[in-house]
Amino acid sequence: EEWMVEKALMVRTGLGARQIESYRQGAWIEGVHFKRVSPSGESTLRGTTWYNYPEINKFIR
Score class of each variant (00 low, 15 high):
R24S: 07
K35Y: 06
I56V: 08
T48R: 07
H33I: 02
N57I: 15
K7E: 15
R46W: 13
L45A: 11
W3T: 00
E21Y: 07
V37I: 12
I20Q: 01
T13G: 02
Q19M: 07
E1K: 08
V32W: 05
S43K: 05
E21S: 08
S40N: 12
L45W: 07
W28L: 02
S38R: 09
W28S: 00
R36W: 14
T49I: 15
V11T: 09
K35F: 06
V37N: 07
P39Y: 10
I29S: 06
G26L: 10
E2W: 09
I20V: 06
A17F: 08
L45E: 14
V11Y: 11
V5T: 15
R18A: 15
S40D: 14
E2T: 10
N57E: 15
M4N: 01
E1A: 09
G41Q: 09
G31A: 03
T48K: 07
T48M: 10
G41L: 08
I56Q: 00
F59W: 15
H33F: 03
N57L: 15
V11K: 13
R46V: 14
A17S: 12
H33A: 01
S43G: 12
L15W: 08
A17W: 11
E1V: 09
T44W: 08
K58G: 05
A27T: 08
K58P: 02
V37Q: 07
V32L: 10
Q19S: 05
I60M: 13
P39D: 13
F34P: 00
K58Q: 07
T48Y: 07
H33V: 02
V32S: 03
Y51M: 01
E55I: 06
V5M: 15
G14M: 04
A8G: 06
G31Y: 04
T44R: 05
V32Y: 05
K58L: 08
G14W: 03
S43E: 11
H33P: 00
I20P: 01
W28D: 00
L9R: 01
Q19D: 11
I20S: 01
V37K: 06
E42G: 11
A17Q: 11
K35E: 04
G16F: 07
L9Y: 02
V32A: 03
Q25P: 02
R12M: 13
I29R: 06
G26M: 10
V11F: 11
Q25W: 07
S40K: 08
E42D: 14
K58W: 06
Y51I: 01
F59I: 05
G16W: 06
Y51H: 00
N52E: 01
R12D: 02
S38E: 13
R46D: 15
N57S: 13
H33E: 02
E30H: 05
T13L: 07
E21M: 08
G41D: 10
G26H: 14
E2A: 07
R24C: 13
V32Q: 06
E42A: 09
M4C: 08
V5A: 10
N52R: 02
L15P: 00
T44Q: 12
E21I: 07
K35R: 09
G47V: 14
L15R: 00
K35D: 03
E30F: 05
Q25R: 13
I56L: 02
I29C: 05
N52C: 06
A17N: 06
G47E: 15
E1M: 08
T48V: 14
L15H: 01
G26T: 15
I60L: 15
F59M: 06
Y23C: 05
E42M: 09
R36I: 15
M10N: 03
A17R: 13
G31P: 02
I56W: 00
F59E: 03
G47K: 08
N57Y: 14
P54K: 09
P54S: 10
R36C: 15
E42Y: 06
E55Y: 03
E6K: 14
